[in-house]
């Protein structure tokens, strides 16, 4: 019987895969794609928890939609930044971007 835990565990696995991509990838676009995976995992959790814990409130789906909006904005700005960095450095390798120093 499939219940809430199965959906949450699916979200957990997807989040783990995305986080691995963020840590282990070097291509900036690949890192952005992994971030998208993590956001999708969070959305699955929102919708599943919304359906099983508070189905009458509908907040889970609403939050999932807001997360999708923010993800779209994030991808647009992130890709624009990557294109600007590529123009300046001729590379999308994250280990070449060490201009932010402290």
């Amino acid at each position: 019987m499939i219940g809430l835990s199965h959906y949450l565990i699916l979200g957990c696995i997807l989040f783990g895969i995305g986080a691995y991509g963020v840590i282990a990838k070097r291509n900036a676009v690949a890192v952005l794609m992994s971030v998208e995976l993590m956001l999708n995992a969070v959305n699955i959790n929102f919708v599943a928890a919304g359906k099983y814990i508070a189905p009458a409130a509908g907040i889970g789906q609403l939050f999932a939609i807001f997360v999708i909006v923010v993800a779209a904005a994030e991808v647009a700005v992130g890709l624009a930044l990557i294109i600007v960095l590529f123009k300046a450095r001729k590379s999308v390798n994250l280990s070449d971007f060490n201009i932010l120093k402290w």
């Binding site: 999708n40 699955i44 919708v47 359906k51 789906q61 999932a64």
Partner: peptide
């Protein structure tokens, strides 16, 4: 993931 949403009766999402 969209298929999962359909499974959860969240057609609009």
């Amino acid at each position: 993931v969209a298929g999962i949403y359909f499974q959860l009766n969240a057609g609009f999402v």
